[in-house]
Design a protein around this nucleic acid. Structure first.
Lengths: 109, 109
DNA sequence: TGGCTTATTCGATGATCGACGAACATCGAA
DNA sequence: TTCGATGTTCGTCGATCATCGAATAAGCCA
């Protein structure tokens, strides 16, 4: 039997395996939309611990997992640290114009 | 002045009052996405009873209410019949490119 | 080796969601 | 006015979700 939590093992699905509803569900939550927007503004990697939101660490980890499973973000581990970035180019290949449209609509209240 | 509610009591929010997460949530469900896609292909009104889906009437009514509240569709009552149509132009004014992007991504499995 | 930091996973909780059938409301027709 | 057709609302059920704190795993450093 495999040892339970092989912890930092991040799963990054191929974009071809991700369907539209999964992506929309991932984006249809305020905190996650905020994270994606934050990463988009950053143009590159962002350190995990620099993602400052008024939620518990475990909750943030949970949201990042959902974003990962939707193919929206990817994680890179360096020692004990973790860096998160948007898979924007790949997403655009799979769902052309979608992420850009969502992000440009994000800040029109 | 008679505010929006028609005889059946349908609420159609002003698009300015609808926020992005609400729209994304409405679209992030297979049945509703299918309805929206169906209406988009139709280019016009569609009779309620012609929306043939493998769900109960009450469930369809529920989904249409969510789509209405998200500003995505509108209802028009004529006698006992009801016609549904997409508010695509208005949506595009509020969230430029969003609906088009979602719909064009819809059929790329 | 033993701490320290960092992120994930577990377990629990309360809220929300999609589904259904039944009851209700509305309108046209008999 | 009674009947039938058409949607909506209500009440409920099981599943999923967001959230938290605690426990766990994995790597660095003294």
């Amino acid at each position: 039997m495999a040892p339970r939590g092989t912890s930092k093992g991040h799963e990054h699905p191929a974009l071809s395996e991700v369907d539209l509803v999964t992506v929309l569900s991932a984006l249809a939550e305020p905190t996650r939309l905020r994270i994606v927007g934050m990463l988009a503004e950053f143009e590159g990697e962002r350190a995990w611990k620099d993602i400052e939101l008024p939620i518990a660490q475990s909750t943030l980890s949970h949201h990042l997992k959902i974003l990962r499973n939707a193919g929206l973000v990817q994680n890179r581990t360096e020692g004990t640290r973790c860096f998160v970035s948007l898979r924007d180019h790949e997403i655009d290949g799979r769902f052309p114009g979608l992420l850009e449209a969502v992000l440009s609509c994000r800040d029109t209240p």
